[in-house]
Design a protein around this nucleic acid. Structure first.
Lengths: 351, 351
DNA sequence: TTTTTTTACGCAATCGTTCCCGGTAACGAT
DNA sequence: ATCGTTACCGGGAACGATTGCGTAAAAAAA
């Protein structure tokens, strides 16, 4: 099954010209007569000629395609980011190859190897929860592969980065819980080493401190696989419920964790927000229909993708090696709904 | 910014050999001495040599990448299908280029052109709601581009196809509504011409007929953009509510439509399932947490992707043109939850 | 020793395109 | 008549890899 396309040679032969002339005619070079150009252009048009991108890639030593690695695309946040990336990429003649790490370091490395061996011109990545060893990234970066990190960034590598204002998002969310009258606020998060975890927990702690609430490390739980494995959220919740006194609200730092918490709370028969307040980072567009409608912190995902791709483009198309890199921080949005409603009792306590 | 990789020439020069010898050594040809092989292999290993896939593509006239077009990846069904596709593709050394039509015919054609001009070896596609003109697909198909349709297939083109058992899924769902005591069952669906719409509505009608319920065309509504535009679902709902007597249950034939309906019903203050039963096709993994938990028909999305990619691989790797094509039909799953609970009143009526 | 065979490698074409060198014709100026 | 320009166009070498064919040297057979 071959899907043969017309080449510049075919045109040359048909018109009795050389390939160089045809090539130049197609690129509208000044040293080709208008008559010849017309001939070539007409023939090309009629036979629906398209330059072979693979030959071009080989010649120009660039593939005009970039790689994107996220943990999974079946996650609203990431699919929205990808949409943003693609919108810019396509406008600039790049195509996007998407790979999923599924929160596994091994799969991440495999994908990375695969993508680079397919000679991508650049990489946009949010690292997996398991990733602690950045040596391969460093190696690629040193070899000159343009990289833009987003979301879960790695601070050791100097390049462009795009993140949401995780600190402020978490701060606002926690503060909101406090204002609702919650006092024993637990945090369920991704592994501690992840950049987003650090930033979000810092915001969480700062809000507590600013509210004169003691930070209790026992109330901070980590899910090693970011909620990919269902049981780990249950595990963590169980530990939380064992505490005396237990938490009266939960702040979840990631999409899967937020909805995962809700599922467990409902399974336990706990009423949200009465028995337990719940707020979390989420970009799912169904949170308003949940029971109860969830209060969330939303990231400007699409925009983050756009920015990341724009920055990558700068890196790729720069003639000289880029040396001063920037970290773009985009604001989050706090959406207050029923899962953190002010309760009479609590509100009274607070008053 | 160039990201230079080592080539076969570099190895040849470094070792004082010819490129052909190096090439053959790397491919473990019999006509290269063990000693030379060892030398080459060691050097390649140490310098982390990888054959340039672009050069290979040019030589072998295949890109080892396939295109996938869906309306949007931020849709659980499609992202699950894509996961299935990728799992098979990666195992076979193919990479997957994903494009989104966003339910627009123009964008679909643009993506198609883009993908083919990037010389993909094959195409997997679920067409957009707008697509009525299949001439470009036909042209590509005739030119020898291997195509596999899934989900929203086009019957006029003879090639492999993968679908869920839409008829049975819809039949079962409708029958379930009937058994719950609902009698005036409305259907909200995608445009009428879409294959999935035809199949699902056929199942819906058959269930009604088998239950001796008259099919009322006024209760069947179509959303031209498959729910991509929020207002169109509202529009359709409004028309439905104007009817006297109005429907007592809704069967939605697509993911976005199902959750869209729920959103509108809640906005109208209607209680589900009491004032209105609701069931629909959906692959979102949050439907159990909604208010109320939604009864749904679920498609084996991941599996569908696997099957589609496997079939495409057959097409691509077949030596002779394939002539007998198959349409794989995979079973759906009916998940009964609270949005269609049997109500006392209704159940009594039914008894 | 001579001939044949085997071993082990190199040359060059190929894939589709671009681009650096040329080259040739026509024409005006000297 | 000669030279310099200008306008057009072609040859051929890249880009990185594979592969059919040719061939020197070494080994085996005569």
């Amino acid at each position: 099954m071959k899907f043969e396309a017309i080449t510049i040679k075919d045109i040359a032969k048909a018109l009795g010209l050389s390939t160089s002339t045809v090539s130049r005619a197609l690129r509208d070079s000044y040293e080709i007569s208008p008559e010849t150009k017309r001939l070539v252009l007409e023939y090309a048009e009629k036979n629906n000629y398209h330059p072979n991108p693979i030959a071009l890639s080989l010649k120009e030593r660039r593939s005009r395609s970039i790689g994107v690695i996220v943990c999974e695309i079946a996650n609203s946040y990431f699919s929205q980011v990808i949409n943003g990336i693609e919108s810019i990429a396509y406008n600039n003649g790049y195509n996007v190859i998407i790979a999923q790490s599924r929160e596994s370091f091994d799969r991440e490395m495999l994908n990375l190897q695969y993508l680079t061996s397919r000679s991508i011109d650049g990489l946009i990545i949010s690292i997996s929860t398991e990733t602690k060893d950045f040596s391969y990234f460093k190696e690629l970066h040193q070899k000159g592969l343009p990289i833009v990190f987003f979301d879960r960034i790695v601070s050791e590598i100097e390049t462009h980065k795009v993140i949401a204002d995780n600190y402020k998002g978490a701060y606002d969310a926690t503060m909101h819980l406090v204002n609702c009258g919650y006092r024993r606020i637990a945090a369920i998060s991704n592994p501690a080493l992840l950049s987003i975890t650090k930033e979000r927990l810092a915001g969480y702690k700062a809000a507590l401190v600013d509210s004169s609430i003691e930070v209790n490390e026992a109330l901070i739980k980590y899910c090693q696989h970011g909620g990919m494995i269902v049981s780990e959220v249950e595990e963590v919740a169980k530990e939380l419920f064992k505490l005396k006194p237990g938490p009266d609200a939960i702040f979840a730092t990631a999409d899967k964790l937020t909805t995962g918490c809700l599922r467990i709370l409902k399974a336990k028969g706990m009423r949200v927000p009465h028995d337990m307040g719940l707020i979390g980072f989420s970009n799912t567009d169904l949170t308003d229909l949940l029971d109860p409608p969830l209060s969330i912190i939303k990231q400007p995902a699409f925009e983050m993708g756009e920015v990341a791709m724009t920055l990558l483009l700068q890196l790729i198309e720069s003639k000289r090696p880029v040396t001063n890199f920037e970290t773009r921080v985009l604001s989050t949005q706090l959406l207050i709904r029923d899962s953190t409603k002010i309760m009479k009792k609590k509100a009274d306590e607070f008053a």
